[in-house]
Simulated assay, not measured.
Amino acid sequence: MKDAEALHKLRQSLEQSLPLVKAVFPIDVMFALTNREHFLFYLPGEEIDIHVEEGTPIPARSGIRKALDQQEPVSVALGKEIYGTPFKSTTLPVRNEGQEVIGAFTIGISLTHQTILNEAAEHLATSSEEIRSVSDEIAGTATELAQEISLLKTLGERVVADLSKTDAILAFMKQIADSSNLLGINASIEAAHAGEHGRGFGIVAKEIRKMADSSGSSAKEIKEIVDSIQDSITRLGKKLEGSYLLSERQAAATEQIAASMQQLSASAEDIRRVAQLL
């Protein structure tokens, strides 16, 4: 009889206080009080409703029955397919003054927010992993590109250096042309002094001067072409250097993105842990 009176007083207290608790609770909750056989009090949530009323027998395979039989707190997670909304019920045995279990008090807390958080965390983790994978690939490609550009820049510098060597060759060709031209002039003078006997020698001298003029002209043209090539390669080298710096910045930026994505993955795991606390 004392046990029934104690449960009755507890029920009266719960009827007065729990609606207020429910009103200020940040997520949907339900409450129930039982004796060892049936429900004495039930306050459903906005979405959580196990559809019982006073006098409904305690289900044989419920968390409440388990808590009563084991005489210890029991928590059970129930999926959306059972009552239409996922929630977690926690049942505490109610004891009399002699510490005998005379009933149970149950609170059901909605897991809707936990489900949303878990799904968001999973999506975030998957997305960040995909982005990080792509970022790693871009970073690797950018690094390879920087290496290739650096190699091209080195080859361009080598070509410029090789072209610079042609200056000595062209100078030598010009010197030969000048010397040949001078030789031709001297030969022409000597041929003129020789008169009729120097006619053949004069023809040779003329051809030598033509060859000298042709060689000088060719050397000049080659010099202009070489200068043009050298100028183009120099400008190309500057462009390659700019591209190299950009590729290095790209590699650094993508590595930073990959690091940020790794941090997002860690944040997703934190969200999962927070969700499990609900």
Rank of each mutant, 00 (worst) to 15 (best):
T91E: 02
L92D: 02
N96H: 04
N96Y: 02
G98Q: 15
V101F: 07
V101A: 07
V101K: 12
I102M: 08
F105L: 13
T106A: 12
T106L: 07
I107Y: 00
G108N: 03
G108E: 01
S110R: 01
T112D: 09
T112C: 02
H113Y: 03
H113E: 08
H113W: 02
Q114E: 11
Q114F: 00
Q114I: 00
Q114S: 14
Q114H: 09
T115N: 08
T115F: 09
A120E: 09
A121V: 10
E122N: 15
H123W: 03
H123D: 11
L124T: 13
L124W: 03
A125Q: 15
S127H: 12
S128C: 09
S128A: 15
E129I: 01
E130A: 11
E130G: 01
I131S: 07
I131R: 14
I131K: 12
R132P: 01
V134D: 07
D136K: 08
D136F: 02
E137C: 03
I138F: 14
I138L: 10
A142L: 11
T143H: 11
E144C: 03
L145H: 04
L145I: 13
A146P: 00
Q147W: 06
E148N: 08
I149D: 07
I149S: 04
I149M: 12
K153A: 04
T154C: 00
T154N: 08
L155S: 04
L155P: 00
G156S: 12
E157Q: 11
R158H: 12
V159H: 11
V159Q: 13
V159R: 11
V160K: 15
V160R: 15
V160S: 08
A161M: 10
A161G: 07
A161T: 13
L163R: 03
S164Q: 08
K165P: 01
D167R: 13
A168I: 11
A168S: 12
I169N: 06
L170M: 14
A171E: 15
A171N: 15
M173Y: 13
M173G: 04
K174P: 00
K174V: 06
Q175L: 10
Q175E: 14
Q175G: 07
A177K: 06
A177V: 04
S179N: 10
S180W: 08
N181V: 01
N181T: 06
L182M: 07
G184M: 05
I185P: 00
N186I: 11
S188N: 05
S188A: 13
I189E: 08
I189N: 10
A191Q: 09
A194Y: 00
E196W: 02
E196Q: 05
G198N: 03
G198C: 02
R199C: 00
R199E: 06
G200H: 04
G202H: 08
G202W: 05
V204W: 09
V204K: 11
A205M: 05
K206I: 04
K206D: 09
E207V: 06
R209M: 09
K210S: 09
A212T: 05
A212Y: 05
S214W: 06
S214H: 12
S214T: 11
S215H: 05
S215I: 14
G216Y: 10
G216P: 02
S217F: 01
S217M: 03
S217T: 08
K220H: 07
E221H: 08
